[in-house]
Design a protein around this nucleic acid. Structure first.
Length: 152
DNA sequence: GCCAACGTTGGC
DNA sequence: GCCAACGTTGGC
């Protein structure tokens, strides 16, 4: 069992949007960063737990929990010229970009804000809190996972 | 809206 | 392979 943090902009797709999806499941398309892609493609397994993080919004923070329900497969939006995620370098032979499916588990009883996370010494060293960290998908250590949920 | 940090692109 | 220019992310 591994733990992850995935960022999403709530104005576009927040935890409530995930909960409202059919089967509360959505494919995580549009990832166009190699490091984030590699985490999905090479390491994510069905059953892994995810902190659903709201970014680029008024109050950034952890909003809920999701889990991986399908392992990496080609991100078809890369092959669609109509998509804003279109990548002309993606091909059938080399899909280049991948996505996983994630399912809503639960919403936290309250938003645990970035500010609070930064103030928790138990989270020292967490990738999310490192200066200049822009990765949209990152692994979370089990101790950090527990410490975040203990703040709920 | 600003800007720091970071990733990607492309000329050389 | 270097690195300047550019684009994006995301907190504030």
């Amino acid at each position: 069992m591994q733990y992850w943090l995935m960022k999403s902009e709530p104005d576009t797709f927040g935890i409530d949007d995930l909960a409202a999806r059919k089967n509360a499941t959505e494919h995580w398309d549009g990832v166009r960063n190699y490091q984030a892609r590699n985490f999905m493609r090479d390491r994510m397994k069905v059953g892994d737990q995810i902190l659903f993080y709201h970014s680029a919004c008024k109050t950034p923070g952890v909003a809920g929990i999701a889990r991986v329900v399908r392992e990496a497969y080609p991100d078809h939006t890369a092959r669609n010229p109509e998509s804003k995620y279109y990548d002309p370098k993606a091909s059938d032979d080399d899909p280049r970009w991948y996505m996983v499916d994630v399912q809503f588990q639960r919403k936290l009883s309250r938003l645990i804000t970035l500010k609070e996370l930064k103030g928790n010494p138990a989270l020292d060293g967490m990738a999310l809190l490192k200066k200049g960290s822009r990765l949209s998908i990152m692994p979370v250590e089990e101790a950090h996972w527990r410490a975040v949920l203990a703040m709920e």
